[in-house]
Amino acid sequence: MDLQDLKNTWNKLAPGKELDEEQLRSMLGKRTKSLIERIDRNIKIGFAVLLGLIVLFMLDDLFFSPETIEKYYSEMPIPEWVLFLAFLGNILIVTTFLYFVIKYYRVKKHCDVACDLKGTLKKIIETLTIYQRLFYLALAIMLLAMASAFTMGMYEGLNHNAELQGLQFADIETGKLILAVAISVVIVLLIGSAIFFSLRWGFRKLYGNYIKKLKSTLRELKELD
């Protein structure tokens, strides 16, 4: 069988079951199953959630926390380094949020599905990369929040313990303090790493092969450029 036979065989194939206008019209109303459309929606939801968190954290820093501190902790002021950490965390979240929004809309403008294959592939890979980074960012923020909350909790716990014994925080034995810090660090690292690696494994399992396939297709296109 040669290539001409191949063409002749191809021409004998039935094209497929013809659909009428009504059947085609019903398809227009259905939500696309495309992964990229779904990821697009998830990114927008992610932005909305991040924006909500930013507003919440700022309200907390400007109104709720000062009120709570004044009402319940006026004799036990929160250390400045803790306040600084919270403020720095907010700045980090806001800057990263703005960076992602700008990057995302730049990629969106790039081209639509009627572009050439190379452009379409590049756009999808960039969108997935943004999604992946947004995922890691959300993970990092969650871990940072957990670590700060845990650290603050340990600090308050030690302080409270010292007070019960009629001491100040500065009176706590250095050895005990170092042990407490070491335990905190180990626990935070263990739990944080476990969460990070298991979620990263999950993300790679879901999308890892797909990203590889797209990159390999793009490499194939670039071969003879």
């Binding site: 009627a114 050439d116 294959l117």
Partner: peptide, 23 residues
């Protein structure tokens, strides 16, 4: 689609892009 290319060209392009990049 502004008719810069043939309808068949546009359809092939979208169909092939979708098929190749489908997850």
């Amino acid at each position: 689609f502004r008719g810069d290319s043939k309808v068949s060209t546009w359809m092939y392009r979208v169909a092939l892009n979708t098929a190749i990049t489908t997850f």
